[in-house]
Simulated scan of single mutants.
Amino acid sequence: MVKHGISLVEAARRLGVSQSTLYIALQKGQIPTFRRDGRTVVSSGALRDYQTGKRPPCAYRL
């Protein structure tokens, strides 16, 4: 199965947040990412989970 992924800019737009807010969520581990063709991307499922509050447990806190 091939993961396509959504760019971080597009992910922020879809969530209706600034890129800074998205990066903070990424740093906290609230939205999992993966690498595709040298770019960091987010799966649409991960965005959906974040929006519905099903965030993965995180060991990193700011």
Rank of each mutant, 00 (worst) to 15 (best):
Y50V: 08
F34G: 02
P32G: 01
A59H: 04
R14A: 05
V2H: 07
G16R: 10
R13P: 00
V2Y: 00
I31R: 05
G45P: 00
R35K: 15
A59N: 08
L26W: 00
M1Q: 11
G45S: 11
P32D: 02
L26D: 03
S20L: 13
Y50D: 05
L26C: 08
R14Y: 01
G45M: 12
G45C: 08
L15S: 01
T40E: 07
Y50L: 10
A11L: 10
L22Q: 04
V2R: 13
Y60I: 12
S20E: 12
V9N: 11
V17R: 06
G45A: 10
R48I: 15
Q19A: 06
S7P: 14
P57H: 05
T52I: 15
V2D: 11
R48Q: 15
R48K: 15
S44T: 11
T21F: 08
Q30M: 13
L15H: 00
R39F: 12
P56R: 08
S7N: 09
T52D: 10
T40S: 07
I24P: 00
Y50K: 12
Y23I: 10
A46F: 05
S20R: 15
S43K: 08
R55Q: 14
R13H: 08
M1F: 01
P32S: 05
S20H: 06
V41W: 05
P56H: 02
A59G: 13
L8V: 11
I31E: 02
I24N: 13
R39N: 11
C58H: 10
E10I: 10
L22N: 01
T52S: 15
C58E: 07
Y50C: 06
K28P: 06
Q30Y: 07
A12H: 06
L8G: 02
R48S: 11
K3E: 07
K54N: 15
R14F: 04
I31P: 06
P57L: 05
R55M: 13
P57M: 03
V9D: 11
R61P: 01
Q30C: 07
Q27W: 04
H4R: 15
A59Y: 00
C58K: 12
A25I: 09
R14T: 00
A11C: 10
P56S: 03
Q19L: 14
V2G: 01
G53E: 09
A12L: 11
R13C: 04
A11W: 02
H4D: 12
K54V: 14
K28S: 05
Y23C: 07
G38H: 12
Y50P: 13
G53Q: 13
I24G: 09
S44E: 14
C58G: 12
S20K: 14
I31V: 08
R61F: 03
G45Q: 14
G5E: 03
S43Y: 01
G29H: 04
A12N: 09
F34S: 04
S18H: 12
R39Y: 13
T21D: 08
K28T: 03
K28Q: 14
L26E: 04
I31W: 04
R55C: 09
R14P: 00
A46Y: 02
K54I: 14
H4A: 11
D49M: 14
R14C: 05
I24Y: 04
M1S: 12
V42N: 01
Y50I: 09
V9C: 09
